[in-house]
């Protein structure tokens, strides 16, 4: 058997992958795992506490919310929204960001100048505000949430990757590739991209955590998926109304978000260390 690659040996990477795996299982098999229909309202048993507290009901292991919906089932179904957004938004942002980063860093000159100014304009908006405004323009819905996050966060990739591309661009092996007759496209994909890939993967992992947070924020203010879909941010917003009666309803989704974000962050950190990418200043901006 071949030995594990170095990055898989890292405890951090393993921890992250296990967490993501658990979440993915929850998301994929949600209908089989969830004890109840996440949207079914049991008006007879609203705000029941979790099973271990006094008055807990075995039917609702983590209790119910103000409409009598099962908290555990909503958490499990909420993982679907979170992971869908995490994966599709980070892939989308990565593709756009990486494309412009490579073009800007490789060609330099006015192309670089122009892309640099566009990124600067983007960065003059706090991301939360920009995504809110975009959601106002686009309207709610899962696809629009993903689109909004992609449109906001591609600059994270672009900024960090661009400086990496510039470093690699100056390497002699890039000149050597040009001298043997590589086209620009081939030079970028064969010589530069393999060098930026570790950084790209690391950033992707961190971006997934960011996307989960942004989705939670958007659904918290009611600007994400519609109310018929269970989402963690919505659960927080609902639970906030009954903070004294059912604090656990608030703690559960907070923990879920934290768990997911931590999984992606620890994976990102493990990858950063083992893939030897330098990510100092712009780590998580």
């Amino acid at each position: 058997m071949r030995p594990l690659p170095l990055w898989l040996k890292s405890g951090r990477v393993q921890t992250g992958l296990v967490i993501i795996f658990i979440l993915a299982v929850c998301a994929i098999f949600a209908p089989y795992l969830a004890p109840n229909d996440p949207n079914e309202q049991n008006l007879l048993s609203i705000l029941t506490p979790p099973i271990w507290a006094d008055g807990g009901d075995a039917m609702f292991p983590l209790g119910t919310d103000s409409l009598g919906r099962c908290v555990l089932s909503r958490l499990i179904f909420g993982a679907r929204v979170a992971l869908t957004v995490a994966f599709s938004a980070s892939i989308g942002a990565m593709i756009i960001g990486a494309f412009f980063a490579h073009v800007a860093g490789y060609f330099g000159g006015w192309v670089d100048w122009l892309i640099g100014r566009v990124v600067e304009i983007w960065l003059s908006f706090p991301p939360v505000i920009l995504s809110l405004i975009l959601m106002v323009g686009l309207g709610t819905g899962l696809r629009n949430v993903v689109l909004a996050i992609v449109l906001v966060d591609w600059t994270r990739f672009c900024r960090v990757l661009r400086s990496e591309v510039i470093v690699l661009r100056r390497r002699d092996y890039v000149s050597a590739a040009q001298l043997v007759g590589f086209s620009h496209w081939r030079t970028i994909t064969r010589e530069i991209l393999p060098g930026t890939l570790p950084l790209l993967i690391t950033l992707m992992s961190l971006e997934m955590g960011v996307a989960i947070i942004v989705e939670a924020i958007l659904s918290f203010v009611g600007m994400s998926v519609g109310s018929e879909t269970a989402a963690w941010g919505q659960m927080i917003a609902d639970a906030r109304q009954n903070i004294y009666d059912a604090p656990f309803n608030l703690i559960a989704p907070i923990f879920a978000i934290f768990f997911a974000v931590f999984g992606f962050n620890i994976l990102g950190d493990g990858l950063r260390r083992t893939l030897d990418t330098r990510l100092t200043q712009t780590e998580r901006t």
Partner: peptide, 24 residues
């Protein structure tokens, strides 16, 4: 120096963060 340049970006974003904190 590098810490400061990160602070520039982060403090800008902090204004976005106030929005949530204010609501809560």
């Amino acid at each position: 120096l590098p810490t400061l340049s990160l602070m520039g970006v982060q403090f800008g974003f902090l204004f976005g963060g106030t929005l949530l904190v204010e609501i809560i």
